[in-house]
Amino acid sequence: MISDQLFFTGINVLLAWSVYIGLVTGSLSFAQGAFMAFGCYGAGVLTVKFGWPLLPACLVSAILSAMIAAVLGYPALRLRGVYLILVTIGITFCARVALENIDYVGGVGGFGGMRGADLNAVIVAVLIVGAFLLWFSFSPLQRICDAVREDDRVASSLAINVTFIRLLGFSAGAAIAAIAGALYGHYMNFVRPESFDVLLSIYVVLYVVLGGTNNMLGPLIGATLMTLLPEYFRVLAEWRPTVFGLAILAMLLFRPLGLLAFRLVTAHASVSAPRKSGSL
């Protein structure tokens, strides 16, 4: 039981990070359910129908998912704000309907036979993705993404290709969501298109909003708390959506930037140089 809970926590952390990496470039995506489904079914086909081992299947489905995100994102990311949100919700709906109509992967009935993922696999994935995000957090690329997120017009006047940066964030998010999907499917052994409902995409965004959108720890905390807490308040199980909604409202009122709102600074002036203090 406890390992189930930890496994789902890990999956949700990965999904929260996949939303976060898009948000870093200023795009809020509700399409993570679709990319998760793609990763799950893509890797599942490779392992079940072609007998691939899980790891390469996982990586290939992540890469394909990123490529699909790039193709979808090129027109979609021209939209901003609420229009982009609607388009990404649309992507999640379309993915589900498409999967329900592909008999090769079982259609509405679902797709089974995937196995091989366990708690260790998801821990390794969380560690690798987390280490990458931490490395990214202190890089010039993080700064460039922040610039795009804060004021895309100024960023492009400073020679930054805003379209490319946004596609990068969206595709990286899709890849991470696909890995989460692949691990999820190979742990559950059996999935159905409705497992990747739009509600899942919404929950994942809420983890990030609760945890904080300014650093990579926020989504980690948000996803962990919101996955584990309901387990320890079993009485509240039926009230989960209500409690969730109230938590969001309380956050928006009292901590609109999330639990962990700080932003990491990406560069400091050289420490060895004599620091001038006060005004000259």
Partner: peptide, 15 residues
């Protein structure tokens, strides 16, 4: 630093 051209021109390489 955001305006530093080698990074702005090649954001992936800046990693």
């Amino acid at each position: 630093l955001v305006a530093f051209r080698p990074f702005a021109d090649h954001p992936l390489r800046s990693l």
